[in-house]
């Protein structure tokens, strides 16, 4: 995103000598830091602390024990939940990347006229600003046993029985994820691609590179910052989700976070906190892995 690039370029600059400008910046950034420290930093610290607490049926008991982590690592279900979450994350990542790259490519390189480009871009963006839950449940009449999709298939004589796997299944979960999160891939890739000088493509063509060669040699490498940022968004969103997986799988699939939500519902805060801590570590590792492959800061400063 241009915004992150902008920030990154600022961070590259050497720290200034102390001056009034710096004091003004501190004052200006203070409200944001205060809100985030209070409602994000402190609570995350509390989660870490509580993950070592003991608990009873109704209460959490201050302590310093590792039982929650031991339980987590010894339960067989943990591995299954992580496998499920990572499976969803990888499938959705692959699909949204394919879709996002192609949509961004179309908007940047095929659509002529800035106004038209902005219009189509907004067309993709507007659903993002409407309710995720509504967008999710809007698949129910589509995919249900008697849904539009099955009616159409049977009407066309493709199938004689309604397909059962469409709704309340992993398939439905993936469809909903792709529906909700593709935009997070489109926007950063679009931003990266829009900055590619069009004459680079002409230069590649002059050199004899065909359409696909140009995409692989020029467009893809120059979009990798956007791809990395989009991947971070999509993977963290899928890994951190519980609502989609619950609704769209009809309770048949679970994710790490939906299991955590169950624990919270049962007032088992410390195990939930331990689970959250492990999840944060894993997501952080994934993000770090992406950043290792693509040095976003260096790329952005380019």
């Amino acid at each position: 995103m241009t915004s992150i690039e902008h920030a990154a370029s600022l961070l590259e600059e050497a720290p200034p000598a102390e001056n009034t400008g710096e004091r003004a910046s501190w004052l200006q950034v203070a409200p944001m830091v205060a809100v985030l420290a209070l409602f994000f930093g402190l609570p995350m610290l509390v989660v870490l602390v509580v993950s070592f607490f003991d608990f009873s049926r109704t209460d959490i008991i201050p302590a310093f024990i590792f039982d929650n982590y031991v339980d987590l690592f010894t339960r067989e279900v943990t591995l299954r939940l992580y496998a499920s979450s990572i499976k969803f994350a990888l499938i959705v990542w692959a699909i949204t990347l394919l879709l996002g790259f192609n949509i961004a490519y179309f908007l940047v390189f095929h659509v002529r006229g800035l106004l038209f480009q902005i219009g189509l871009f907004l067309l993709c963006t507007v659903p993002f600003l409407t309710s995720n839950i509504i967008r999710m449940i809007s698949w129910i009449p589509f995919l249900g046993r008697n849904g539009i999709f099955n009616q159409a298939l049977q009407g066309a004589g493709v199938t004689s029985q309604p397909l059962e796997f469409l709704l309340f299944s992993d398939f439905a979960v993936v469809v909903a994820y792709v529906h909700l999160f593709t935009l997070f891939m489109v926007v950063p890739i679009f931003n990266s691609m829009a900055r590619i000088d069009k004459s680079l493509l002409e230069a590649a063509r002059d050199a004899g590179a065909g359409r696909f060669r140009t995409v692989f040699e020029i467009v893809l490498p120059l979009s990798r910052t956007g791809i990395a940022l989009g991947s971070i968004f999509v993977i963290t969103l899928v890994m951190g989700d519980s609502f989609v997986v619950r609704t769209m799988s009809g309770g048949q699939s679970a994710s790490v976070v939906s299991a955590l939500q169950n624990e919270v519902a049962a007032l088992q805060y410390p195990p939930a906190a331990a689970s959250a801590v492990i999840m944060v570590i894993i997501v952080t590792l994934m993000v770090a892995g992406i950043l290792r492959l693509v040095d976003v800061r260096k790329e952005l400063a380019r």
Partner: peptide, 10 residues
């Protein structure tokens, strides 16, 4: 990018 439910939990 922190999973939202964790923030709420915290």
């Amino acid at each position: 990018i922190m999973p939202g439910l964790f923030v709420g939990l915290g």
